[in-house]
Simulated scan of single mutants.
Amino acid sequence: MSATVPEAARPAPGPRGGGRSPAPVRRAWAAVGEAGLRVVAIGLVAFLALALVGPPLWGKDPLAVALPDALQPPSAAHPFGTDELGRDVLARFLVGARISLAVGVCAVFASSVVGTLIGAFTGLVGGVVDAVIGRALDGVLAFPALIMGMALAVAMGPGPLSVGLAIAVTGVPWYARTVRSEVLSLRSREFIDAQRVLGAPTGHILTRHVLPSVLGGVAVQASLGIAYAVLAIAGLGFLGLGIQPPTPEWGGMITAGRTYLISGQWWMSIFPGLGILALVTLSMALGEGLRDHLDPHGKLRR
């Protein structure tokens, strides 16, 4: 015999799922997030395409000196103006974008591969190996990319190799720590124990079961790493320790143009600065969007 609950005593109807937002609201927020992520990805692809095909399409030599055309403001012939030597700033901007992306992506790729392998190995093996390698990585973390770049520029000479090496070396510990923390949570899972009971070697467990499970976190870290790499390249170029003139590079272009800001030639520094701002913002937004998309519960939060 069941008691009948009076209508007035019944609880008011609420959203399903224990107080969560209604399904249409959740779907609307998800659609906005996915749409934003697609827009950011399209922006980065457009930036990459501009850097790759922009210089040949524009057709002007970024190193061609034309002193009669020096310090010309933006016009139809020179949309970004000219610098103190009459060189087309747009042509130099496009080549600078190519250099920043090439050095940054190569450095991030190298550091992500090395850091992922180190983090997965130390997290899976543990013990003394984990402790020793962990302390070595902590020592590398004491040197920011700019400081490491300055040291390598003094030792090897300024250039793209020393800049890329500094970014790659200082980035390895971040990937290693990210992957190690995820591997430590995977190490106690049943499927890893089953593989060990079956006699699977460590290399098999690492490549077939551990690495595929941590690639999401690595992708997020790499997206953010490109932004930091672009800033480091520009910072070293601004200090005169990065890629050297006459090769176009955004940080060096800002340094060359800052002395002309007072006299009104703003375009020499503003356009490279806007390029850095746009590329860093897109890279950071992609990293944040990937983190929210791949990890809605916040496990990849710093």
Results as ranks from 00 to 15, higher is better:
W250D: 08
S213E: 08
V65M: 08
G289K: 01
G199M: 03
G33F: 05
R177V: 01
G237M: 05
V128F: 13
R26C: 01
A285S: 11
V53E: 00
I262M: 10
P62N: 07
V108C: 08
I147M: 15
R135H: 14
V39Q: 07
L161E: 10
P22K: 04
I233R: 02
Y228P: 03
L94N: 03
A155W: 12
R20I: 05
P56V: 01
V40I: 04
I42C: 10
L231A: 13
Q221M: 14
P55W: 02
I192K: 07
Q265C: 09
P246E: 04
P74S: 08
A229T: 09
M268S: 10
P296K: 01
L63P: 06
V214H: 03
M150I: 14
V45T: 06
F47K: 08
A41Q: 11
R87M: 10
R189G: 04
A28Y: 13
P68E: 00
R135S: 15
A97K: 09
S185G: 14
A222G: 02
P173H: 03
R177E: 07
A155Y: 08
A285L: 14
A31E: 09
S111Y: 06
W29A: 15
L67N: 00
D292A: 10
A76L: 13
A3I: 11
I276V: 15
A30L: 04
K299R: 13
G81Q: 11
V210H: 04
P248M: 05
L57N: 03
G264D: 11
F238L: 15
V197T: 12
F47Q: 12
A49S: 09
H293M: 11
F47H: 09
V154P: 06
F238A: 12
D61H: 11
Q244S: 01
